[in-house]
Design a protein around this nucleic acid. Sequence first.
DNA 1: ATGGTCGGTATCCGA
Length: 256
Amino acid sequence: MKIATWNINSIKSRIDHVLKWCGQNQPDVLCLQETKSVDAKFPYAKLRAIGYPHIEHLGEPAYNGVAIISKLPLSNVQRNLPDDKSGAQSRMLGATIGDLRLVNIYGPHGTSQGTEKYVFKLEWIGRLRKYFDKQFKPRENVVLCGDLNVAPHELDVWSVPAWRNKLHFTKPERDAIQDLKKWGFVDLFRQINGDEKEFSWWSNFRHDFEKDRGLRIDHIWASPPLAERCTECWIDKDPRGWDHPTDHAPVVAEFF
DNA sequence: ATGGTCGGTATCCGA
C-alpha cells in the first residue's frame, strides 16, 4: 500500500498536476491539503476517471480544505475534530481503509508569534493530541499525515540560524508537535532516511527552491505496528519544478 | 535585511 500527502494550494489551479502525478506514481491513497474549494467545484469526475473512485472532501471557499482520494474504499469518515463547532476551518479528515485508520490534517499556519492565530495554532495541535488519546491506541494501525506547518527538528530546516524564532520553527510550535508525536507516532521519513536533510516546502519568494532553502513541514507519521510495515518513505521534489507549482512537494510512504 | 510570490471571496488578505 502506497500513501501520499500533498499540499496543492488550490485544487482548481493544481488539478492537472494531481492527475499527472497520480498517473506517474499510482498511490493507493492521496491526502490533499489546501484544496481551497467547495464540494460543488471539486473535480470528483476527473479523479474517478484515473482510478480513484473513493473520494472524501471537506472544504470551504478560498481557504483551507482537505481531501482523501483513494483506490480503496473509505469508511467511518471523520470531518474535523469532534470538538470543532460547525463552520470551523476545514483542517482534518479521517477515514478507515482496510485495517488502518488514516488522519489527514492541514495544520494552522499561525501568521506570526503573538497573534490570535498563533495561539489558535498551538491549541489546535493540542486538541489533535487529545483526539488521538481518546480515539485510538498506539497498538492500532494509525497514520497521521499532512501539512503540519511546523518543522519539528533542526534537521528539518535548511538553516537553523536563519529560522531561529521564526514561525514554523519557534519553541512553542515544536513543543506542541513533539507532544503530539509522543502519543506514539513514528516519523516515517526519519525511520527510513536517518539524518538526511530533505525538505517538502520551499517559499515562492527568493527562488528558495532553486537554492534548496526549504523546510520539512509535510509528514507521514505512523503508530509503531504500522511503522514496522513501512518499507519506503520519500519526498518527491519533481513536481515542485513543474510549471506553476504548488510550494509543497508530495511525501510518500509504502507499507507491506 | 520585514522584501519577495502566489491564489482567491481579489485591486487586499492569508499563506
